[in-house]
Amino acid sequence: MRYVMTVSPDFPPGQIAGWYIFNTWLQRQLGEHIHVELYSDFEAQRKAIREGQIDLIYANPFDAAMLVREEGFTAIAAPLSKPDEAVIAVAVDSPIQQVADLKPGTRIAATDDPDVNLISMIMLEPADLSAQNTQTQTVGTYILVAKQVLQGKADVGFFLKDAFAGLSGMIQRQLRVLVRSEIHVIRHVLLVGPRLRERHGDLWNLLSEMGENDKGRDALKNLGLQGWEMQTQEDTEFMIDLMDTLVN
């Protein structure tokens, strides 16, 4: 059987090759034919999931509830020491010094990354801000988020912490972090679809031992990961419950 693997569209563009290298490693280890299908946005990926086209996914935590509770996916691993944290930044010379300084009508620049946007909006709640009294400009990349802020087209920008850290030094010096999340438990998760479930045990063993050989370590390095933390279904259910409390 030919299986399909996909990756949450918010992965850093520099890691596209890393996912193909991971897939080559996985196919050899598992002895299965797996095709990598990448989607440019979350909606296109969700449509493919709903149509039953996906067997293995490195999923955004925002989509984990739908995948596990509606589409029958099971948890297998999460990236080691790599939680999804958000950063809200302003231009370095902005008069905004703290979240409480923000007022209704605040202009936000953001990508379509759903968990970063959720966490970031929660961090604006203490200023009585919500989707109803702010203006969000959705752009394609975090570099464009930074540009919107630096060009004065947005008052604040929402960033994935790792993406913010990956901005060039020149751009970072023109931005100032207003607030950063420290949630620790929201993170991407590798999930196995119903068709691939009979190989769940083999996948578990392969991924848990991935860092113990050179080829596995190289594949991890290309993904920007230290390793995998193996997940029980309850680990992922716990994160889904937590996400559920955050979605109004």
Binding site: A100, I122, M123, E125, P126, A127, D128, F238, D241, L242, D244, T245, L246
Partner: peptide, 12 residues
């Protein structure tokens, strides 16, 4: 039960 608490608005 899961309970999550976040920073509230001063107005509220």
């Amino acid at each position: 039960c899961t309970s999550v608490r976040r920073k509230p608005s001063r107005t509220q």
